[in-house]
Structure formats: C-alpha cells, structure tokens
Measured scan of single mutants.
Amino acid sequence: TDVTFHVNGRNLHLKGADEELLRRIEELIRRGADIEELEKAVKEWEK
C-alpha cells in the first residue's frame, strides 16, 4: 500500500506499507507524535 500522511505541514510518504505499519503510524499520530517519531517508526519497520 502506498499512502501519504500529512503531519504538521510535512508529508510522510510510505511505499509498500503493510497493515501493521499503518496501524502503528495512526496510533502515533493519535498520541500527537511529531514527524521525526513517525520517520523513526518507519525506519524500524523497514529493517
């Protein structure tokens, strides 16, 4: 799945995201995470 999140005026584009990653990103956004936290979560998922 390709999806782009718009967070605090910045874009986080995910290519090939699975349901697990999407749920994790949505949860972080609900908690008020900043873009750096979201990018870190994506990097951890990519490993």
Rank of each mutant, 00 (worst) to 15 (best):
K43Y: 14
L21S: 02
K47T: 11
E37V: 10
I35L: 07
H6E: 13
R24S: 08
D18R: 05
E36G: 07
K47M: 13
R23K: 10
A41D: 04
A17R: 02
E27Q: 12
L12R: 00
E36T: 07
L21C: 04
R23T: 08
L38D: 00
N8I: 01
I35Q: 02
R30P: 01
V42T: 03
E27S: 14
A41G: 03
E39Q: 08
T4I: 15
N8A: 05
R24L: 10
E37K: 08
V7H: 04
D34Y: 07
E39A: 06
D34N: 08
L38V: 05
A33I: 05
D34W: 06
L38W: 01
N8H: 06
E44C: 11
L22D: 00
L12Q: 00
R30Q: 09
D18K: 06
H6N: 10
V3L: 08
K40M: 12
G16V: 05
V7N: 02
E20W: 15
E44M: 12
R10M: 13
D2Y: 08
V3A: 06
G32M: 04
I25K: 00
A17V: 10
D34Q: 09
H13G: 01
E39K: 07
I29K: 01
E46K: 14
N8S: 05
G9E: 03
R31L: 10
G32Q: 05
R24M: 11
L14C: 01
E37A: 10
V42D: 00
N8D: 07
I29V: 06
G32H: 04
I35D: 02
D18P: 14
E46N: 14
H13F: 11
E44T: 11
T4L: 05
G9S: 02
R30W: 11
E19F: 13
L38M: 07
L14Y: 01
W45G: 04
E19S: 13
L28E: 03
G16D: 08
L12H: 00
E27F: 15
E37Q: 10
F5K: 05
A41K: 07
V3N: 03
T4W: 08
I25Q: 00
A41P: 00
I29Y: 09
R24F: 10
H13Q: 06
K40T: 11
L12G: 00
R10F: 14
N11C: 15
V3W: 11
R31F: 09
T1D: 07
R23D: 05
G16I: 06
E27V: 13
D2G: 05
H6L: 13
D18Q: 08
E36V: 07
L14I: 14
K15R: 12
R23V: 07
R31E: 08
E20I: 13
N8K: 06
R23Y: 11
K47Y: 12
V3G: 03
E46S: 14
L14K: 00
E27I: 12
E26M: 15
L38R: 00
V42I: 10
L38H: 00
L28H: 03
I35C: 02
I25M: 07
R31C: 09
L22A: 02
L12Y: 11
L21M: 07
G32D: 03
E37F: 09
E36R: 05
R31M: 09
T4D: 14
T4K: 04
I35R: 01
N11M: 15
A17I: 09
K15Y: 08
T4F: 06
G32P: 01
T1R: 15
K15C: 05
E26A: 14
E44N: 12
V7I: 09
K47A: 11
E27Y: 15
E20R: 13
L38A: 02
F5E: 05
A17D: 04
V42F: 03
L14N: 00
D2P: 02
V7Q: 03
R31A: 09
G16R: 10
E36F: 08
T4N: 07
T4E: 10
D2M: 05
A41Q: 10
H6W: 12
L14F: 04
E37N: 06
K40D: 13
G9R: 01
K47L: 14
E46W: 10
